[in-house]
Design a protein around this nucleic acid. Structure first.
Lengths: 225, 225
DNA sequence: TTAATAGTGTCTCTAAGACATTATGTG
DNA sequence: CACATAATGTCTTAGAGACACTATTAA
């Protein structure tokens, strides 16, 4: 077996696809790259950074550090998405990007939005460097797929929400329309949200029962929405 | 943004989890590491190797080259599994393993089995170096999960097979028992296999209709087996 | 009372699960 | 003909899809 030291190593970075819902549409967070970056300085891209072998204990530590340093966020629910690697994807040479994705309520990212951090709708992405468009679309596919059999979309909402809002998020993320009674039966059966007694949200009409997630972690079902 | 050149890079390798069915049980292929490997020389492990930035165009090329060089196989159906990285997983220091998995009929690997290449049952793994046990168990979970909504298990079988054999593979891989009429209805509905007219397999009793896969590629369903 | 949204009832029909039965080969 | 395995029929029942209806607030 060839020894590592004999070979040149690829650059290894992580990239994060952070999803949220804004105005009923799925958005992704992008951040301005440093002015002294070797490639694409000052351009907007997925937040990412190199693995620091002297600082990071493992890949998740890299992700947390990068999110904190580049966009000032502490880690939400994050999951590994996929790894992209090749000679072509970075003008600087052979590189590997280990992509993660996260899902947060809009309020979570609002404090850091500004000149250097933006939200863009996933179906109206601006041009992005590297293979970031492919990474985003892989993330959207995963989000779509996993939404069909998990409570993932519930994490796009704030602490409290109505069942109609929950249904709208499922519909938006999955790109389908759902029947209200069926949706409510399934949500009831899975029991991943609970009504907050007494808490209601009223507009000009009949107020809606407020719900919250049960438990902090993602739930997976075998049922399909 | 920090520049890559300022940082030490982790070692990057790929590892392959190659599944097959032998004697009705799910097996994984392991291979003996080179005698001059820096760590775990001569030990059995998942076949793997470093990314060669001067030879490989992308990650899949690395996988294909490694599979060819280390076990003498050309690439079957392969899919990226997950990426494992950290300071702890290799005694040689910070390392990243991008794991792939594949699914093949036993006949595919038989020619290369011998002193340096073995098949072991997934539920009776010998001790393996690095975090290879975790990689295998991640692969088994993926295989299980994906079997519920795809034709993946059909690729563990030879060119031709009976419906009972197909059902047994699904049962073996998913770890459940299935009802025969239900299973056949679903297979029929998905249409990912077809009967071969006239071809039968007979034991001492009523011969069974032989089937083959339709198309070369994996099919995904929304239905759950 | 009306408008608008929240929430539930109910009917139909598909299909899963379970069990039984028929079909077809060998010795 | 007995036997073993292959393949199919059928009954029950759960639940999805579709549509209609009731409930509750503000203006």
């Amino acid at each position: 077996m060839a020894k590592a030291a004999e070979h040149q190593k690829p650059n290894v970075s992580i990239d994060v696809v952070l999803f949220t819902i804004r105005g009923g549409r799925l958005h992704v967070l992008i951040a301005r790259r440093a002015a002294d970056a070797r490639v694409f300085p000052g351009k907007f891209a997925l937040p990412g950074g190199y693995v620091h072998v002297d600082e990071d204990q493992d890949l998740m530590a890299t992700v947390r550090r990068v999110l904190k340093q580049k966009v000032g966020l502490t880690a939400p629910y994050l999951e590994q998405l996929a790894t992209f690697g090749g000679a072509y994807r970075d003008p600087d040479g052979w590189s590997i990007a280990i992509a993660y994705y996260g899902v947060v309520p809009e309020s979570y990212v609002e404090p850091v939005l500004g000149q250097d951090v933006r939200l863009v709708p996933v179906d109206e992405l601006p041009p992005l460097p590297f293979d970031h468009p492919e990474i985003v679309s892989t993330g959207v596919k995963r989000l779509r797929g996993k939404s069909g059999y998990s409570s993932l979309p519930a994490f796009l909402l704030p602490e409290t929400f109505t069942l109609n809002e929950l249904q709208e998020v499922y519909e938006q993320v999955m790109g389908v329309r759902l029947e209200k009674p069926t949706f409510r039966r399934k949500v009831e059966a899975q029991g991943f949200v609970e009504a907050i007694p007494g808490e209601m949200r009223g507009g000009a009409h009949r107020p809606a029962q407020l719900y919250r997630r049960v438990g902090e972690t993602l739930r997976e079902f075998d049922q399909v929405f």
